[in-house]
Write a protein that binds this DNA or RNA. Sequence first.
DNA 1: AAGTGGTCTAGACCACCGA
DNA 2: CGGTGGTCTAGACCACTTA
Lengths: 262, 262
Amino acid sequence: MTTRTAPLYLSVADAITRSIERGDHPVGSLLPPETELCQRFGVSRHTIRAASRRLTDLGLIHARAGIGTIVRASSASPRYTASLGSLTDLLAFTQATRLEILSTDDIRAGEALAATLRCRRGQAWHRLRTLRYPVDEAQPLSHTEIHVRPAFRDLERHFGNGTVTIFSLIEQHYGEVVAEVLQDIGACSVSAPIARLLGVKPRTAGLSVHRHYLDARGKPLAISLNTFAEGRFRLETRWRLGWQADPLPAGSRRKRMPAPQR
Amino acid sequence: MTTRTAPLYLSVADAITRSIERGDHPVGSLLPPETELCQRFGVSRHTIRAASRRLTDLGLIHARAGIGTIVRASSASPRYTASLGSLTDLLAFTQATRLEILSTDDIRAGEALAATLRCRRGQAWHRLRTLRYPVDEAQPLSHTEIHVRPAFRDLERHFGNGTVTIFSLIEQHYGEVVAEVLQDIGACSVSAPIARLLGVKPRTAGLSVHRHYLDARGKPLAISLNTFAEGRFRLETRWRLGWQADPLPAGSRRKRMPAPQR
DNA sequence: AAGTGGTCTAGACCACCGA
DNA sequence: CGGTGGTCTAGACCACTTA
């Protein structure tokens, strides 16, 4: 246990945390100015700022120059988070794959498709029907129907025969960045036409994975509807306990992100 | 456009980042001591430490008192992370559910089960066969086979008739904390006995979700094997782009370079 | 014992915000 | 304008690791 005396700034952070939890500083209100906290705790401003940084990391407060320090939450609660090195990891392919385009067309979303894609009825999409194969295998891994913005229509010209993903092509050739991915997983029966393409019997069990690739404003860049045959694919996610803050909702100005420049 | 000059510590952080990316400091090697960096950049130690904190947040370095600052990665790459407020969110139940215990027994893992549970053959487990129902519905949501450590055998005594989860009972009554959850998803055909319990026809499509609940040392507390009938369940995950560091694996000591470069 | 990062003080100037 | 948090300096002591 805590035999060692904790650093001063942690004690201060703890005291402020308890003060917030007790309700002394309701959510939305301002914490006392740092100079006042210095006097109250009898420590230097540096120590107060170290404590403040900790509370910021915990998601309890949000300091803003010229305004003050706003209380964001009344208690620090543990969170489980999962992390991916890249979007390719989301696909969870243990080996390299290649994408084969079966056909492309321009469509407008009918009622059913609009519900699946979560868009308006009549929304225009450029659709690519594809099969994904493990490299060096004749048996496809999945049937994937990709819907992209009409503006990305000439995307397929950039498909090599290599191991590519849609989102990487969009990021490379259109300067868009995938800021968010919404993934939706369910079970499905593989329909007859898709079963034929996948080389399985109709009505066998399949994994249905929908992925919405969104830009920074939350607008969809591409939406893929994947169907995996039973046994050819498992999706693994590792959730770790931590105390990282919930990200601020988009639109609220965050600290300057100094241009990841790459 | 950037008329504004960036803060000093960010410039320093950028310079060190480029230096690492250039290969001046290979992964595993030590960065120069902070005092030396002060001289090199002509700034105070506080500024160096602010830069160092940024690189730590980006996952590039790992500073350890008495040792030095170890380079963890050669480039800051964006990461996609998903976050949960609680483990219950992992279950993604939009409504409250109740758990019905069908039977319990003590078993030892055979070959097949050991592979599924990722444990040794012959490993002892206490098994609970259960059905999960949405509150106020007669149709079960899923068939769930829960394997817990034999030490948790009298767990079922604590089951109320309420809306409980296994891990919350373990956390409450045995003082263990779920530090990590490994979730594995695939498609499956629903076997005849389970189909009967779920009220669907045998061999229809189902969603197979395995969850390993691990303690802080990575030892399994409980492992649940869930089978959801088609259409009764979808699992949604939202991944956001960020620059947070990959968490260090639990208990890992960073290895030293044979020839530490300095 | 020497050197590392971790903590802390006292003081200063700045950009930003609201009145 | 006055007050806020953001940044920066110069100096100090500590706990820790390695030898």
